[in-house]
Amino acid sequence: MIFAQIFDMISVGIVVIDKELNVEKWNRWMETHSKIASENIIGHSIFEHFPQLETKWFIRSCKSVFAFGNFLFFSQKLHGYIFPFMNSFTFCTEFSCMQQNASMGPLRDENNQINHLYIMVNDVTEIASYEKKLIEINTRDPLTEVYNRRFLSNRLQEEIERFKRYGRPFSIILQDIDHFKKINDTYGHICGDFILKKFAHLNSERLRSVDIYTRYGGEEFCCILPETRLESAYKLAEDLRVTIEKQLFEFEGNKFNITMSQGAVEITLGVSNAEQLLKSADELLYEAKNTGRNKIAARITEM
């Protein structure tokens, strides 16, 4: 009697499934969040109400519990959720569905045979939301909202590893706003900040969704272009150069144009770390600066 009450009072979803994957128990938490009354689901296949669960991993997980008596843990990080329920935390707007950590394990009968398994579901939307915010704080530049240098270094190293493993090419473009100090000195730092934000926005919106745009530091920015040879990177850099050159910036009644210099490099076998690649892009960037600015210097890196 008391145990039966716990089953329905607890703030955790509990489902019991038999070997045919039909639902045998469905607690009140599951009823509330799924809006499916237990009498409408008990005796029915779990896939009847949740067809999206009919996947290789879910079926294999169930079989693994029946075969080995395994306890399986499904993390929110990997799956997001097991059951698609409405998000009950209205302030966590970044998730459309309730984020869940779930576990699955065996239920044995008096002969120690496993004929049923349980699934327990925990709502972790709030934690996942905090975690997402922490990751954002840790990887984004607060002023321009593009990725920061820490993210750039890690991501660049990952791309280098991928290149070494699969030989997939990639290029980077390092950009520097020409005469930025002069803008700061003439119009003030608030105007400088406005320029940085607008500059980052103009560049990042012209990139593909697979490309990564980051603030390298000060008025320097870096694009990582996966699966891109130097020739295509050069074309993109030229397109970006023209975009910035043509854009009229307007701040508190002052109108002005800016330009940028760029260094573009493609990865080669001799490069072993992010610093080496950034260094060669930086050298090219200064080559562009020293030969007149508002231009691109590009080369395949030779180490």
Partner: peptide, 25 residues
């Protein structure tokens, strides 16, 4: 089938679930 994670974090989560199955077995 996962769309939320990429790169190393995804791999770790998958290794964790595969490890979970093998240790359990």
């Amino acid at each position: 089938e996962c769309s939320q994670l990429s790169g190393s974090s995804l791999k770790i989560e998958i290794v964790m679930e595969i490890g979970n199955i093998l240790i359990g077995a």
